[in-house]
Design a protein around this nucleic acid. Structure first.
Lengths: 221, 221, 221, 221
DNA sequence: AATGAATGAGGCTTCATTCAT
DNA sequence: TATGAATGAAGCCTCATTCAT
């Protein structure tokens, strides 16, 4: 009735070693389990009972660790965003030329697809629902911060003559962002391309286009 | 609240001939109302009571029109998909060269953003949840059909030397598709660009890329 | 599973007559049932399931009539207070001399003991708990209104020389009020005294005191 | 949070001799804390976690001191009742005349308002709920004992011609009792009157009545 | 004595759906 | 077609209590 998973395989001692661990390790483990289910079924369709079952405890016991179901998804999302923003900042601080920085940002984006697959999926699917709650206002803030980083680089690239001047920076950012994140819907590790391959593929098309030969439209700048 | 007892008296046929004509009109109206709410709040977060309220009736009364909540969203999605596929087919049957056809398909895609905004939003946000029900299997089928149309054109374009040969057709399709549909999340009529402008903007970047000057990578074919 | 009470005794037709009735009759009936249980067990110790069981329906069905458990107790209390204040106002508007009016108010107070026994009990026992919720602020308001009515009469009586001047009007009111309401804890219809008898007994002691012979302290006025 | 492992090393006896002396002091402290919260929020609305928080420990740790939540409130109430009955007995044993003894009992009652405010509040508000549990039967017994003391004095007063004979002793007792205890709801130290003042105020009204001039009804005896 | 994790029962509430009228 | 009352299942959460450490 207690341990439901991994119960018959591991020796008792190993089990105890797993069950203990630092206070927040347990919490992190639970967040990870929850994230997977949220990603698979959607936040609303996921019951706290499912999360608890997956962890081998009763649903009420979850509330020893979290205030509410919202708190859990909050931790899922904020963990991802914190990591993402930190990576972006590092890329910006490298001080490279715009095209190189932007390429790196694309790589960073695709690079989160695997480690943060669940969180990105939740953000894609449940964002619309979650944002109606005041507690998730910070998500909008984070989104704005990220947008500024991208738009700034695109504009810098246009100023430096690296990017065509006849595209809208904000619009372009949105298209890039969506193309990256939405890939989480169909990308599965182990397919033809890994996320690095995906990134390079996209960088190619993004910068040089799908067409061959001469560019049909020339930049105005 | 209105007519309450006219069920057993009048002959069914006569009644339908007179009072009807709006038989399916009423139904369509309800579907449209529901679609808007589904789009705004998500399918699961939308209660049948909300839909009924919006229509000025009680929730139980909805069941004179639809078997279930799923039936309503089903109608929302299938109406959109039927229209979309019909348009794609028309573009394909025009028999133009691949690049022209693909451009037209992009235009068609962006062109559905306004008339089918609600349906597209629902498909984006609730697809993950809905697909777990067998009744929505046909959605997967429709998605596959559409994918084939696109991939065929991309391959044709590569064969004709119009498109670079070093990109993956299926992957490219998915990125195009995602870029278009996901725009429904932020596109609002009345902004800087209408959907036609959006389409042209994207076609430019898609075919010629973001960069200026020489293409850094050359097609292998 | 549906009708649990009065099911075997009454003929089917009678039952239907009971089950229907005007929309608010059903609601009033439920409120009355709930009031009895609240009085017997306390508001918090009463579960919505108990209320629903008593009414022969499922707990969820209660929410067809009421927003919440609080709404039910709200209706219990406000019904009582509305009636009480109306009666007090009528007594005040009779325009009698203070001692007569005050006597009448005492009679009114004891007079509510039977028809509003449940509500008064709830107010006595659960007031402390309920007042913490903003929605019950109006209870405090009603209490203040009533206090003003009483205090005004006591002061008037002192001004007219009918009541001793060396007592505090507000304090005296509180003691009278509490003595009346708190009787709901032990008063049971069918005992030695009915509520009229109780009222007269209290009026006697209230005005003339428990002692015999000369009053040991004289009014200062 | 503090000492965590000193259980198996030291001999129990030595430990108790040193660290203890506050064995029951700690317990009494916890009871006092609990009483305050019970009074403020009601017994049922008070969680063991709140009590533990107030004491700076975790809720589970409370169970090293008490078997259950009921045990705590039991201690709150019985402590008060033991003290009250002892005081009453002392007054009775003084052997004064009925009116003097009764006055003293009124003073004792009001005198408990401050030192036992919390316990009295709990008894007022949660009596109805608590009495349904067999373990609190002794409360009813104590209540009966007290009633007998009062009624005996009232009857003695009537027999001695000090109190009017046309009042019901039991009924009179109840009204006096209620008037005193219920004052706990609004009495706050530091107001116009302290409990001594309250007592004298009430004694005046109780024996001589609110009215001035001749008594309108005369005792029959 | 205290911690911290868990239990198990139960509470209030929501909601899609049904059905007699 | 619509109403209004009800169902029944389920959901999130609370809380007194237990127990190994």
């Amino acid at each position: 009735m207690t341990t439901r998973k991994n119960s018959t395989a591991a020796p008792p001692k190993a089990k105890r070693a797993t069950a203990s661990g630092s206070a927040s390790e347990r919490r992190d483990h639970l967040v990870k389990l929850a994230a997977e289910i949220f990603a698979r079924k959607g936040f609303q369709a996921t019951t706290v009972r499912e999360i608890a079952n997956e962890a081998g405890i009763l649903s009420g016991s979850l509330y020893h660790h979290f205030d509410s179901k919202e708190t859990i998804v909050d931790e899922v999302l904020s963990t991802f965003l914190d990591d993402l923003i930190a990576r972006y900042r590092a890329a910006l601080e490298s001080g490279g030329e715009p095209r190189a920085v932007l390429s790196e940002m694309v790589r960073i984006g695709f690079g989160t697809l695997e480690p943060h697959r669940a969180a990105i999926t939740v953000m894609q699917n449940d964002w619309n629902y979650l944002r109606q709650f005041p507690r998730f206002n910070y998500l909008v803030k984070a989104e704005d911060d990220v947008e500024q980083m991208w738009v700034k680089q695109i504009k810098a690239g246009q100023g430096a003559g690296q990017f065509r001047a006849d595209v809208d920076p904000k619009l372009t950012y949105r298209m890039i962002r969506d193309t990256i994140w939405v890939a989480v819907r169909w990308f599965r590790p182990g397919g033809r391309l890994n996320t690095t391959g995906l990134a390079e593929h996209y960088i190619t098309v993004l910068f040089d286009g799908l067409a061959t030969g001469e560019r049909s439209t020339q930049p105005k700048a």
